[in-house]
Simulated assay, not measured.
Amino acid sequence: MLSAPLRLRLIAGSILMLASCTAFAFDFKTVGPRSVILYDAPSAKGGKLYIAPSGMPVEVMLSYGEWVKVRDASGDLAWTEARGLSARRNVIVRVAGARVRAAPEENAAVLMTADKNVLLELIDPEAGPWVRVRHRDGISGYVKAADVWGI
């Protein structure tokens, strides 16, 4: 049987842990102007998994000193140095033929169709049923949030 003070500490610790988990929101970043190496551990001595190209969106899962654990669009987890990431936001198209529209509505004019895995710059990070994006050719409009990854 646990003593009353120990039980109280366990309950308080559990509440704090749950509160910190719900308050923490994952953060999306983009690989900066230079490609970065993704490792299996938070160290340059770790095993090299692959090179992430400039502009690739990643989800930051955990920070550990100067290193961050990230998830890519396919769900793979890896470590990279935080300094290689940018606050600029890109998204990647998850479906074939995602339509970028002139307004955030289904009957708005189609400005372009983006193939699967095309990178789009996220102009407005407010998540809703539609997000505002810009293609590298300068075309900007709205795409369904469900059709892209990185928000």
Rank of each mutant, 00 (worst) to 15 (best):
A23E: 12
A23H: 09
F24N: 13
F24R: 14
A25I: 09
A25Y: 12
A25D: 12
F26E: 13
D27I: 15
F28W: 15
F28P: 01
F28C: 07
F28V: 14
F28R: 09
K29G: 00
K29D: 05
K29H: 11
K29R: 15
K29E: 10
K29T: 05
T30N: 09
T30R: 09
T30G: 08
V31H: 05
V31G: 06
V31Q: 03
G32F: 02
G32W: 02
G32D: 04
P33H: 11
P33I: 02
P33L: 07
P33N: 10
R34S: 14
R34L: 11
S35P: 08
S35L: 06
S35F: 08
S35H: 07
S35Y: 04
V36M: 05
V36C: 06
V36R: 04
V36N: 03
V36P: 06
I37M: 12
I37Y: 08
I37K: 05
I37E: 10
Y39L: 07
Y39C: 02
D40L: 11
D40Y: 01
A41G: 06
A41N: 02
P42K: 05
P42A: 08
P42W: 02
P42S: 03
P42D: 01
P42Q: 01
S43F: 02
S43R: 06
A44L: 04
A44K: 10
A44H: 06
A44S: 10
A44D: 05
K45Y: 12
K45C: 04
K45D: 13
G46I: 09
G46Y: 07
G47T: 15
G47I: 13
G47H: 14
G47S: 13
G47E: 15
K48P: 10
K48A: 14
K48V: 15
K48E: 15
K48F: 09
L49Q: 09
L49A: 04
Y50H: 11
Y50V: 11
Y50N: 09
Y50P: 00
Y50G: 01
Y50R: 15
I51K: 11
I51M: 11
I51D: 13
I51L: 13
A52G: 12
A52W: 07
P53D: 13
P53G: 09
P53H: 10
S54F: 02
S54Q: 07
S54I: 00
G55F: 04
G55W: 01
G55A: 03
G55V: 02
G55R: 03
G55K: 01
M56R: 06
M56L: 10
P57E: 06
V58S: 06
V58N: 07
V58H: 05
E59R: 14
E59I: 00
V60G: 10
V60P: 10
V60M: 13
V60A: 07
V60E: 12
V60I: 15
M61Y: 10
L62Y: 07
L62G: 00
L62P: 00
L62D: 03
L62N: 06
L62M: 08
S63C: 04
Y64D: 10
G65T: 00
G65A: 02
E66W: 00
W67Q: 05
W67C: 03
W67I: 03
W67N: 03
W67K: 01
V68M: 05
V68Q: 11
K69R: 14
K69H: 07
K69L: 13
K69E: 12
V70M: 09
V70P: 09
V70A: 12
V70C: 11
V70D: 11
